[in-house]
Amino acid sequence: MNRHPFNLILALLLAALLSACATPQNNYDPIEPVNRVTDKVNDGIDRVTLKPLARGYTAAVPKPMRTAVSNFFENATYLNTVLNDFLQGKGEQGFSDLFRFLVNTTLGAGGLVDVASSMGLERHDEDLGQTLAVWGVGESAYIVYPLLGPNSLRNTPDFITATATDPLFWLSFTMVPAVTIPIAVVKYVDQRAQLLEASDMRDELALDPYIFTREAWRQNRLYLIHDGNPPKAEPLGDDGWEEEDWGSKDDGWQEDEFDRPAESGTESIESAPAADENSAEPENATHPSDKNIDAPAEKEAEPLSGNMFRINLASFRSETAATNALHMLRSRMVDSELETVTIDNQRWYRLHSSELVSGMDAKIKLQDLRSRTGIQTAWLEPVSP
Rank of each mutant, 00 (worst) to 15 (best):
L112S: 06
L112Y: 03
V113C: 08
D114M: 08
D114C: 10
S117C: 08
S118V: 11
L121F: 11
E122P: 02
E122I: 11
R123W: 03
D125S: 14
D125W: 10
D127E: 02
L128Q: 02
G129C: 04
Q130H: 06
V134F: 05
V134W: 03
G138A: 13
G138Q: 11
E139Q: 13
S140D: 12
Y142H: 00
Y142A: 03
I143V: 15
I143F: 11
Y145R: 13
Y145V: 11
P146Q: 05
P146L: 02
P146H: 02
L147Q: 04
L148G: 04
G149H: 01
L153Q: 03
L153S: 06
N155T: 12
N155V: 12
T156S: 12
T156L: 15
T156Y: 10
P157R: 05
F159S: 12
F159E: 10
F159M: 12
I160N: 08
T161S: 15
T161L: 11
T161N: 09
T161P: 04
A164D: 05
T165S: 11
L168G: 06
L168R: 10
F169M: 14
F169V: 15
F169N: 06
L171R: 12
L171S: 10
S172V: 09
M175H: 14
V176A: 15
T180W: 08
I181S: 07
I181V: 14
P182D: 05
I183E: 13
A184M: 13
V186H: 03
D190K: 13
R192T: 12
A193P: 01
Q194F: 04
Q194A: 15
L195M: 14
L195R: 12
L196S: 03
L196N: 08
L196C: 07
S199P: 09
D200W: 05
D200P: 03
M201E: 12
L205F: 15
L205G: 04
L207K: 10
D208C: 06
P209N: 06
Y210K: 06
R214P: 00
E215Q: 14
W217A: 11
Q219E: 11
Q219F: 01
I225A: 04
H226I: 00
D227I: 03
G228P: 00
P230Y: 01
P231L: 01
K232A: 15
K232H: 06
